[in-house]
Design a protein around this nucleic acid. Structure first.
Lengths: 238, 238
DNA sequence: GAGTGGTCTAGACCACTCG
DNA sequence: GAGTGGTCTAGACCACTCG
């Protein structure tokens, strides 16, 4: 692990345990250079990480201030990094079960060809799963992935965690995701699986997940029960 | 403007006009050092900006690749930086009208005290506006701002752009925002102003906007017609 | 083994804030 | 004017990718 990461971790710990209390100033960069025995560029890089996380704000001439946003108390980190729903819920200590409703291999239609940058001859997995959180159905999820990028996918993976298989066993690295969030009326299909009423809306999240090499590896549409799931995130300006 | 910004701008232009085509490699950092007559750290910082924007992906040993994400073609930049709806729509060349439904000064209730970090004696503006895009009502927006942070706000500002007044005339700098997005059933009030049907859902976006010094300056809830507005953004991992 | 980007140093100059 | 963080340099070493 690079030095600037280690230093960022140490400083983050001190902020979280109030060694550096909110609204106070971080020691200046020269002092941190002395404490950690590194160059100033390295200290600055460490502080830059904390600034990206919204923990501190540096101002030329005035020092680096510890911020006190209410979202420090919330668990938003899980939402900004793509790691799959199972992993996210596992970290939060909540029990997620995935019930496989459909699992097919087929040729992609036009929409999916575009989203996943495929030709019509490149087969895809088409997966429908109901995600059940602590015995309550809450997301109906349609997932499409190119077969050649995710070989040997099994029903077992779908029931535990696709993300873990793709990342840990296939060694795929994710670059990020493009998401669109919208409200929609529930369909009869939604109502059946999500166990919701005819006039209940759903929150729909569409996402395309990209690998680090730039090719899309997943397109999914998830239909969320409106009363169970909202989507939160922190948008820090740089 | 710092050198690394200038270089990033030049490289971004070359990517957008395909001087560096998608899937090709950027010239290596040593060559760019020669071309621009700067040190390698400066070149690296410029490339870092493009990587944050999702335009390129650098890999140790292999070079820096120009990515070809479909969202290069979409206009998502406006959505990741807080600049107010009027400014956003203005840039897209669309005509936005804001109709002021209510404009009051009052003491904050418990919720707003918490969101804006205020005491119950610190007065706030309470604003309700209907945002009309090209003659179609599409957002009903409730905005709350502390009076002491936004002195002399007038009805005129509400009708044009609060953001422009706060930023340009008051000189406030924004650090970012915390947002929560959810689906909800429409209320009678929504239906009246948004001109939607009883079983139409709405997309609700709650946001707290922070100043660079860390204090919240705005809390708002916007109720969006579900068939007109979705919310998109790019989530790049770092 | 050649070429690549990632990290790090030790210093410098400067713009900015604050009392 | 003293102290702060932002930028920049010219070099170094290294981990990694690729043929």
């Amino acid at each position: 692990m690079p030095k600037y990461q280690e230093i960022a971790n140490i400083l983050r710990t001190r902020i979280k345990n109030k060694t550096y209390p909110p609204d106070s100033l971080l020691p200046n960069q020269t002092d941190l250079v002395e404490e950690f025995g590194v160059s100033r560029m390295t200290v600055k890089k460490a502080i830059g990480i904390l600034a990206m996380e919204g923990l501190v704000y540096s101002q030329r001439g005035a020092g680096t201030k510890i911020l006190n946003h209410p979202f420090l108390k919330k668990d938003t980190t899980a939402l900004t990094v793509y790691e799959g729903l199972s992993t996210e819920m596992g970290k939060a200590g909540r029990k997620l079960v995935s019930q496989v409703i459909d699992f097919q291999v087929e040729f992609p239609d036009q929409t999916i060809q575009e989203k996943l940058m495929l030709t019509e001859e490149q087969p895809i997995y088409s997966i429908v799963r109901l995600r059940i959180l602590e015995d309550q159905p809450f997301i109906l999820e349609y997932t499409y992935m190119p077969v050649h990028l995710v070989p040997n996918l099994t029903r077992g993976h779908l029931e535990s965690s696709i993300y873990r298989y793709v990342k840990e066993e296939l060694g795929v690295q994710f670059a990020g995701a493009y998401r669109t969030i919208a409200a929609d009326k529930s369909t009869a299909y939604d109502q059946q699986y999500l166990d919701c009423k005819a006039d209940d809306p759903v929150l729909e999240i569409e996402q395309i997940v990209y690998q680090k090499n730039g090719s899309p590896i997943e397109f999914s549409r998830s239909r969320n029960r409106y009363d169970v799931r909202a989507y939160s995130y922190l948008d820090v300006q740089h």
